[in-house]
Amino acid sequence: MSQKNYRRAALTGGLLTVMLSLAACGGAGQPATAKVDPDCVPKHEFPTITEGVLSVAAFNSPPKFHALSNSGPFEGVDAELISLFAEENCLTVEFKPMTGPAAQLDLKDGKSDMMGGLILKSEARGEIFGQSKGYITYETVGITSKEGYNSVDDLKGKKVGLISGSTYVAPAKEALGAELVEEYQNDVNAFEDLTAGRVDALVWQTMQGTFHSSTNPEFGTEVIEEDADYPILTGLLENNWPHTKDVPEFTAAIDDFYERVKEDGTAARVLEENGLENSDFYINGR
């Protein structure tokens, strides 16, 4: 699929109205303290830090995942998909909303079983975390700006903001110059600086960009065309759920879930309910 005309004008109201409670085997919408049905038969079995609980360090960034507090409500793509994954494996899920860098550290330190928020797969992350063989969605970089920048070359000499810890930080610094790259701990602060004119553009996943540009009509998010000179910045990458390393049955359970929700239409439904109407791009790529 060509990206030339792929530009999100606005997100639907579904993102902020989808209110998700923590899921147990008895069904979605139950409170966090709900007991798992004793008759529940898990689709897969794998060890977790706390028996019967899936602890998730969730990168708090809509529309991928969003919560106002640790007690919820929990919204977004991964709030629903991870809840469904926990449900079918007879686990209650504990979401711990935090920034991306904090979530990576939480998982690395063994305080969580999984990281949520649709995280890009990378070789570096694979050295530390378990990564699925497949993917839940594809992603590529979007440039959010007032001027409509749509290429790496457009950003040369500009002040550019990125989310700290993201896959794009190192290649952006190499391509644009480290002195022109500003790192942010969260997407809200990054977009505030863009609207205030402290940076000229933001380089981040298209899901983040389309959400934030939909809240301010002065800014748009453009998807960069693939450029062989900048393979990481412009290539199609895979989103997954980083998880405890060297637990093959955990990885297999995630991969099996990914395949089924893409095949049966669940993934497309969840994307569309969260305002990502072009679900085909995220599921099948260009």
Rank of each mutant, 00 (worst) to 15 (best):
S2V: 12
Q3L: 09
R7P: 07
A9I: 15
G13F: 12
G14C: 02
G14W: 04
L15T: 14
T17W: 12
M19Q: 09
M19I: 14
L20C: 12
A23M: 08
G27C: 10
A28T: 11
P31Q: 08
A32T: 13
A34L: 10
D37M: 08
D37R: 15
D39H: 11
P47V: 12
T48Y: 09
G52I: 05
V56I: 13
A58W: 01
F59K: 01
N60C: 04
P63E: 00
K64T: 11
F65V: 07
H66G: 10
A67E: 03
L68V: 15
L68A: 12
L68T: 15
N70C: 15
N70K: 15
S71Y: 12
G72E: 10
G72K: 05
D78K: 00
E80C: 06
L81W: 00
L81A: 00
S83Q: 05
S83W: 00
F85T: 02
A86H: 02
V93S: 06
P97A: 04
G100T: 14
G100S: 05
P101G: 01
A102V: 13
A103I: 08
D106A: 13
L107P: 07
D109K: 14
D109A: 13
G110H: 04
G110P: 13
G110N: 05
S112D: 08
D113Y: 04
M114D: 00
M115H: 07
G116C: 01
I119Y: 01
L120K: 07
L120H: 11
S122W: 07
E127T: 15
S132W: 00
S132F: 02
S132K: 03
G134V: 02
G134S: 09
Y135A: 05
I136R: 03
I143Q: 03
E147K: 09
E147G: 01
Y149Q: 02
N150F: 05
N150P: 06
D153W: 04
L162Q: 08
G165E: 01
T167E: 12
Y168D: 00
A170E: 08
A172C: 04
E174C: 01
A175W: 07
A178Y: 06
E179S: 10
L180V: 13
V188I: 11
N189L: 13
A190T: 11
A190G: 11
F191D: 01
D193I: 08
D193R: 04
T195D: 02
V199Y: 03
D200E: 07
D200F: 01
Q208G: 11
Q208H: 09
G209I: 14
H212I: 12
S214E: 10
T215K: 02
T215Y: 03
P217S: 14
T221I: 14
T221V: 14
I224S: 09
E226V: 15
A228R: 11
D229I: 10
P231D: 04
I232Q: 07
I232L: 08
L233M: 04
W241Y: 12
H243P: 08
T244Q: 13
D246T: 05
D246E: 06
D246C: 04
P248K: 01
E249F: 09
I254K: 02
E259K: 15
T266S: 05
A268Q: 14
V270S: 00
E272A: 14
E272M: 13
N274L: 06
L276Y: 05
F281M: 05
F281A: 05
I283S: 06
G285N: 06
